[in-house]
């Protein structure tokens, strides 16, 4: 940890101490809530790596507004398209962020949002294909000021 990181960490701790009502870590989701949200999307299938590109900042200075984009490689034809894209954040009190159902008329499997992160957390993107296969990508986003409230 260099001097800059120490200062950032100290500032983050200060913010927590100053605003305990606004930022309570007691809100973080239980791990089984995350597993439940994942199972609801995958239907118990093991997610494969690849095809899903998840774009999110490595460090989000403001957890209230974190830009996240998901793109899934697919021809988006009647016979082969992406049925849904779901974004989850493990450490949010409610891990589900957004889920979108797509059709071939979308032309491309793409979703971009601005989302909240209560604290540093893995962000996951799941894509369910028209043949039922599931693909996923994950990225950890470090949050210096949480956006829980």
């Amino acid at each position: 940890m260099n001097r800059r990181e120490v200062l950032i960490a100290a500032a983050a701790l200060g913010a927590v101490a100053a605003a305990p009502g606004l930022l309570s870590f007691a809100h973080a989701a239980e791990p089984d809530k995350v597993a439940e949200a994942i199972a609801a999307v995958t239907g118990g299938k093991t997610a494969q790596q690849g095809r899903v590109t998840l774009t999110a900042p490595a460090i989000a200075e403001n957890g209230a507004v974190v830009p996240v984009s998901v793109e899934v490689a697919s021809p988006m034809t009647e016979g082969d398209y992406v049925k849904s894209i779901t974004i989850l954040a493990d450490k949010n009190p409610q891990p589900r962020v957004i889920s979108v159902n797509l059709t071939p008329d979308n032309g491309a499997a793409y979703l971009s949002v601005r989302m909240r992160l209560g604290e540093t957390s893995p962000v996951r993107a799941y894509a369910v294909m028209s043949d039922g296969s599931v693909y996923a990508a994950e990225k950890s986003v470090k949050v210096t000021i949480g956006g829980c409230g």
């Binding site: 209230a64 962020v97 979308n106 793409y110 971009s112 949002v113």
Partner: peptide, 13 residues
Amino acid sequence: AISKDPYISFKVR
């Protein structure tokens, strides 16, 4: 968990 004043972008053919 979608931020205030939801910004959502998607594609369409």
